[in-house]
C-alpha cells in the first residue's frame, strides 16, 4: 500500500504504476456531470487554486448538515466514462494530477494522463459507508444551490481512502489488460460447441 498525500507533484505521480494500491490522503474535490460541463465551458477562475495538483473524485454523495458544517454519509464512486468528453480538457486546463472514479476511462484520458503526468485511481464501487468515513472534513462546497447536492463541487479532506491505480502516466490501463485477457479466455471457451 502506497500512502499518497494531496496536493502531489508530477514527479511523484509518474512513479505510480497500474496495480498499485493507494491510501489517499489530503484535500480533493468531487465533481460529476454538471461540474465537468461547468469547468469545461465556463472556465471559472476562482477555483483554479483548489484544483492545481489535486484530483477530482467522480462522486455524488449523500450528505448531512450538522450546525454550520457538513458531513458525508454515503460517498461511493460513480461511473467515470460519462466524463470522457470533458476529462482531458479539464485536467490540462486546471493542472489536475488525477481522477478518482469507477469503471475506468477512454483513450483520450489515457493519452492525457501520459502527457501531463496524472493517474486514474479506481475506488471500490458501492463502498458508500466506508468511503464516507474516510472523508474526515468538508472544507467547502461550490455551486450547491445551482447543481444540487450530488452534482455540487465538494472540497473535502480524506484520510486512508483506499483506491487502486488502474490507468497510469505510462500509457498502461488495467482495464485494457483485463479486457484482452478475458476476451481471449472467452474465445477459448467458445471454440467447441456448448452441450450439457
Amino acid at each position: 500500500m502506497i500512502k499518497l498525500t494531496l496536493p502531489v507533484d508530477e514527479k511523484m505521480v509518474r512513479t505510480l504504476k497500474v496495480g498499485d494500491e493507494i491510501s489517499l490522503n489530503g484535500r480533493l474535490v468531487t465533481g460529476r456531470d454538471a461540474v465537468h460541463a461547468w469547468l469545461a465551458k465556463e472556465k471559472p477562475q476562482e477555483i483554479r487554486d483548489l484544483l492545481q495538483n489535486t484530483m477530482i473524485y467522480h462522486c455524488g454523495p449523500v450528505v448531512k448538515k450538522k450546525g454550520d458544517s457538513w458531513e458525508f454519509v454515503a460517498a461511493g464512486p460513480t461511473t467515470s466514462i460519462r466524463e470522457e468528453p470533458y476529462q482531458s480538457t479539464i485536467m490540462k486546463e486546471y493542472g489536475l494530477r488525477g481522477v478518482i472514479g469507477k469503471g475506468g476511462m477512454g483513450k483520450n484520458t489515457l493519452k492525457t494522463l501520459q502527457k501531463i503526468g496524472a493517474v486514474y485511481l479506481h475506488a471500490i464501487g458501492g463502498l458508500a459507508t466506508l468511503i464516507a468515513e474516510s472523508v474526515v472534513g468538508v472544507h467547502t462546497v461550490i455551486k450547491l444551490e445551482e447543481f444540487g447536492t450530488p452534482e455540487a463541487l465538494w472540497v473535502i479532506d480524506v484520510k486512508d481512502f483506499l483506491t487502486i491505480v488502474t490507468m497510469d502516466s505510462h500509457g498502461n490501463s488495467l482495464h485494457d489488460t483485463i479486457f484482452e485477457k478475458s476476451n481471449k479466455r472467452k474465445q477459448e471457451l467458445l471454440k467447441k460447441p456448448f452441450t450439457l
Binding site: 496495480g19 494500491e21 454515503a74 461511493g76 471500490i124 459507508t129 466506508l130 487502486i164
Partner: peptide, 25 residues
C-alpha cells in the same frame, strides 16, 4: 488486490448495517 477489495466490501456491509446507512449511495 481481489482479496482486499472483497474484504473492504464486507467491512462496508457491516458498517452500513451498524450505522443504518445505505450500503450504496
Amino acid at each position: 488486490t481481489a482479496s482486499q477489495v472483497l474484504d473492504a466490501i464486507l467491512r462496508n456491509i457491516e458498517r452500513a448495517r451498524e450505522k443504518v446507512t445505505p450500503i450504496c449511495q
